[in-house]
Design a binder for these strands. Structure first.
Lengths: 326, 326
DNA sequence: ATGAAAGCGCTAACAT
DNA sequence: ATGTTAGCGCTTTCAT
């Protein structure tokens, strides 16, 4: 087991003091060129790599130039785009991004683990029903996609209420009067807001509503039951893309894909290649990610104003499924 | 700025020595119950959190119970499934997983950043053309999906040659004689192997071949050119799912989706809902992730046998597009 | 411009 | 069973 070289080893090899090595490694300019060259040669030959932990331990005020991102399902195209935007924005600032998958229940553990790893800040898409525990973390936090409960911090979300209301109004314009809502668990603020938008657009005339659909399979079952039941809807608003996909499968199985209109919240790959192509309310995850990253870096740099809530607009993309008349 | 509490603060508050706090925090059993209770109370009231960096600095032999995963495109369903499987396997061992997005060129920086963060090991899907630089890292490494160049380590890959050859043979059985290959850059070992499988199945009778297709748009353009050109193929083998999707778009635009057979390597969401449904050679990313994680933990635990290459079998899933006759 | 000494928060080795 | 001392690899005084 060969010892990992330390600054002391480099100093000995280069025939200089520990501190001189430190200066060279940290790019301080107050070192004579020949000494610096000797140090660099020693660094090379020993394959020395500074020990970030030790460095961070001593200079407690400095930053590790690393932020953490905690996301639910990394495979979700929305999360992936968010993640990528954050990485790019961080790259401009010379910061690294570490990501963690937020399995339900592990949210707290992960956040603490990141915090212990001296990340300078955290961007979190909250899953758990309460984020109070985050208040005790060392590092600043920005929430994205969903709002947090029990803790105030900068938050970047889509215009969920307006986007959902716009989709439903779009269906009303086609003449639909019986419009169903299929959504996720109501403890997610996104689901609550999209449901609220749906209700707002319909006024008193809400159609059938199903909550707590956690995945495409559940949505498919619920849609089939609804469409086969009494007084089926002529149009469906799906509040999340896995639900949209479940509804597509249901309509296909019942051969009703051209008989019942469908608009989904959140775009997804291949939506335009389905039959009929799926009309969606597209979010702008790239902009959300950039915005969240910028907010976080401001906080890291010491910004201490009151927590902000930033809303990113959505766009209705008509592709066919939402333009089927009654 | 209120000072973050240290073990010393806890010791003072609890009226015990520093070492006693250390013992309690680390779950050692050689502490009298009443002292332990006092310590725990102090930890609570001060909201003390151990400083992982300092801890790791002292006990150099111990592990941080954290591994890093370096993946190209986290949004790729294959990568996402891999990632999730690794997280689950690590969870069983009580280990955390940090992920990094491997933008081309940043592979080295990220790997070093993770290594500096005292990860116990790394799982890497190599992108760069050379991985020699990884040899100098502290932590053990396992490669997944693609083989590395310039560095020997455990590697978990799909049976790319056999899977591709099987797909092409499947097309031969339907009577196709002019079968095209559309693939990614040949410096990726996966692309090379799938191309080799294609050639092997066809013997001397290879059809038109296009390499270096980096995304769906490039594949769409290449497919259109090929299908409009002289002597077009009657079947296409796409070596990666973004390419498959590009080919689907091309066929759709030319209204040839039922005239030209298509098999794609790697499954993708909604493949079964397209028209015609897309036949694929499915990989098993969950198994690959589990296998890679297990291999890495063995290495972390000190296994020093020669590097292994583990091949995970693929499965042909006939859905329609690959069963179109000539 | 360079170096010696102290100490970041913690654990290991050794008392007691 | 508990405490004391030293020191991990590094940066920060403070000398020179």
């Amino acid at each position: 087991m060969t010892h990992r070289p330390t600054m002391n080893d480099v100093a000995r090899t280069a025939g200089v003091s520990l501190k001189t090595v430190s200066r060279v490694v940290n790019g301080e300019t107050t070192v004579a060129p020949d000494l610096a060259a000797r140090v660099r040669a020693a660094v090379q030959s020993l394959d020395y790599r500074p020990h970030l932990g030790a460095s961070l331990l001593r200079r407690r005020d400095q930053h590790a130039r690393t932020i953490g991102v905690l996301l639910e399902d990394v495979s979700h195209p929305f999360s992936a785009a968010l993640h990528r935007a954050i990485v790019e924005e961080a790259g401009l600032r010379g910061a690294q991004v570490l990501a963690g998958i937020l399995d339900e229940g592990r949210e707290r553990d992960l956040a603490v683990a990141f915090d212990q790893r001296q990340t300078d800040g955290l961007i979190v898409a909250p899953m758990a029903t309460n984020q109070t525990y985050l208040a005790s973390l060392r590092a600043p936090i920005v929430f994205v996609d969903r709002e947090a409960t029990g803790m105030a911090a900068d938050t970047v979300v889509s215009t969920n209420v307006a986007g959902a209301a716009g989709a439903v109004r779009h269906l009303l314009v086609q003449g639909h009067r019986r419009i169903a809502y299929l959504g996720d668990r109501r403890n997610l603020t996104t689901a609550r807001d999209r449901h609220r938008g749906y209700l707002r657009a319909l006024g008193g005339r809400a159609g059938p509503v199903v909550h707590d659909l956690r995945d495409a399979a559940a949505a498919e079952g619920a849609a089939i039951a609804m469409l086969r039941g009494p007084d089926p809807p002529t149009a469906i608003f799906a509040a999340r893309s896995p639900i949209t996909i479940g509804v597509v499968r249901a309509l296909r199985r019942l051969r009703m894909e051209n008989a019942v209109a469908l608009i989904g919240f959140d775009d997804f790959p291949l939506a335009d290649l389905l039959d009929p192509p799926v009309t969606v309310v597209a979010q702008d995850p790239a902009r959300m990610g950039r915005t969240a990253a910028l907010a976080l870096f401001e906080r890291i740099d010491g910004e201490i104003s009151a927590p902000r809530e930033i809303r990113i607009p959505t766009t209705l993309i008509p592709r066919g499924s939402g333009e089927l008349a009654v």
